[in-house]
């Protein structure tokens, strides 16, 4: 018997979000739709919310081998969207290396639009095969903050980079810029981790990660991210030099430690001690109009604390997008 219901036009795992700007300068959710296994939730808007908040979820908190999720997002001129998750995105094992679990995200940022994507890290389980392709088309004057990070798996179960294959690609394209006939690639951040198909001369994937439990990338672009980008660059420049010696006498050292310091200096000293302790390595570089920050840490929590500390200390994301946008990195 033929189904009496109209056929669904969207296919499994597809989702779409459109955010627009109301005449009263408030960002609003113009459209939201999704299909299993993707789930999107947006809390009812408040009148004072600086940006629209969307939770990117999946049923059961993860993606089963072979799941395909594809989300497309449009942020219209001047509107602001922040997207978060609830807990790690778990990637379950695939029955064979050919069954690929995929997550795709296409984002269109129109003029002076802004998008803040600060999710929890992705957690690939043993024998998982995952591909995550995120494309951001950023128009003139638009702003983007993108965090992408991956953990070593379920450490409680002894997993440590036990995945079969991981592909992560983030592309930032300049679109709609003056003197630009077609979109131009600004930054492509791509990682491929192969746990199984390795040359006999290469060490295991786990060994090649040098005790990092999490690695991540933060990409910042646009006028709204200018001060945050500058903050990362100046903090990177202010890092103590490796192998430097302290030539001060014990007396001066004591005297200098006793003199009162600026709040930022106290914060920095605490952060540096934590970086040292959790073997957190990071670098920041200005690349083709974007600031790209790379980091790795010995524990997932140390990585989260570090990125949270940096973003909260600088404070502009919280002001521009609201407290809730940063909930995953607190």
């Amino acid at each position: 018997m033929e189904s009496p219901f109209p056929k669904s036009s969207s296919s499994a795992g597809e989702g779409r979000i459109i955010v627009d700007l109301l005449p009263n300068r408030l960002s609003t959710l113009e459209h939201i739709s999704y299909q299993y296994p993707l789930k999107l939730i947006s809390p009812s808007p408040k009148t004072d919310q600086p940006s629209v908040l969307v939770f990117l979820l999946s049923y059961g908190g993860g993606l089963v081998g072979g799941d395909q999720v594809n989300l497309s997002v449009e942020v219209r001129p001047g509107a602001k969207l922040s997207m978060v998750t609830q807990g790690h995105t778990k990637i379950f094992q695939s029955v064979s290396p050919h069954v690929v679990t995929r997550q795709g995200l296409q984002v269109e940022l129109k003029r002076h639009a802004a998008f803040c994507l600060l999710p929890d890290p992705v957690q690939p389980f043993e024998s998982s095969v995952y591909e995550q392709i995120q494309t951001f088309n950023v128009a003139f004057g638009a702003s983007l903050c993108l965090l992408d990070w991956v953990t070593h798996g379920r450490s409680a179960r002894g997993e440590n980079w036990s995945l079969t294959r991981w592909v992560g690609r983030n592309e930032i394209w300049a679109s709609e810029a003056p003197k630009l006939s077609k979109p131009r690639l600004l930054v492509r951040d791509a990682i491929v981790l192969d746990g199984k198909e390795r040359s006999t001369q290469l060490r295991t994937l786990q060994e090649s990660m040098y005790k990092h439990a999490v690695v991540g990338t933060l990409v910042l672009r646009g006028p709204m991210m200018k001060s945050l980008g500058d903050f990362f660059l100046s903090e990177f420049a202010a890092l103590p030099r490796l192998g430097a010696r302290d030539f001060r006498s014990a007396e001066t050292r004591q005297k200098e430690a006793a003199t009162p310091r600026l709040p930022i200096e106290t914060w920095r000293a605490t952060r540096l001690a934590q970086e040292q302790e959790s073997n957190l390595l990071w670098s920041a570089a200005s690349v083709r109009g974007c600031v790209v920050v790379k980091f790795g840490a010995a524990t997932v929590e140390a990585g989260r604390n570090w990125i949270g500390s940096m973003l909260l200390q600088e404070g502009s994301l919280e002001r521009e997008f609201g407290e809730a946008a940063l909930m995953c990195i607190r």
Partner: peptide
């Protein structure tokens, strides 16, 4: 052999810590 059929769109970092080491070369005192 591994890279023979990889097109430039799929070129990617296979050793993430390498980016950290190279990026932090500027941090060396000498």
């Amino acid at each position: 052999e591994r890279e023979w059929n990889v097109d430039v769109e799929h070129a990617a970092q296979s050793v993430p810590v390498m980016d950290l080491w190279i990026g932090r070369h500027e941090m060396l005192y000498s």
